[in-house]
Design a protein around this nucleic acid. Sequence first.
DNA 1: AGTCTAATAT
DNA 2: GATATTAGAC
Length: 240
Amino acid sequence: MGEEAPEEYELGGGEDERVMEWEAGLPGADELTPLSQPLVPAGLAAAFRIPPEPGRTLLDVHRASAATVSRLRRASSSSSSSFPAFASKGAGADEAESGGGADGGNGNTNNTNSSSSKRARLVWTPQLHKRFVEVVAHLGMKNAVPKTIMQLMNVEGLTRENVASHLQKYRLYVKRMQGLSNEGPSPSDHIFASTPVPHASLHDQVPSPYPPHPHHHSSYNNAAYAATVSSYHHYHHANH
DNA sequence: AGTCTAATAT
DNA sequence: GATATTAGAC
């Protein structure tokens, strides 16, 4: 009966899917390394006179990954640019914590390929939103504009408008939170409530062209970090 | 010309 | 309510 359409596929549930052949056998990106933690124990490092790890931040890694992924993509120009990531709809029992994320369960066997260029509505999963918030926090509200956020998030298929739309809502949420001195977030704030707004995003982080401390080059092999949007389906456009 | 943002539409 | 799309400003 009637025309129903909008099935929403979801985006970037597990933040790693892309050229699975290269990643086969490797642990998930998020599970790889906490990154905020030295790979070599302090004592051991001292014993061997290994210099402390440079202050690599998540964003640095993301950026590096972006470059890597970009290059890899070029090299093998045979990737269908749509992977439906799956979202548990209904039963939700996954939470992501900052720093100790354990996500697992990436089963994608979806292939909704149609000749339509109308993408499905993007679903901002907690994981995706988390990435968003991290990027915004590191940029500072002043510099956090759609294009930049989109680039740093490095999620394939994620568009500037997707980000812009979400950013608009996020700003309202932040403003609302600031207006109130101290009050728990409203239960209707789902995703937002689960992701504390970092103070960095409230004030402005300087657009420092240089990082506080120069990094050395470390030979880190971070596997592809690209998440994929499975966007499909049609929408409708009617008048004006 | 491209992007940002508020408003509005779906 | 969440996300997309538009309109106007920069």
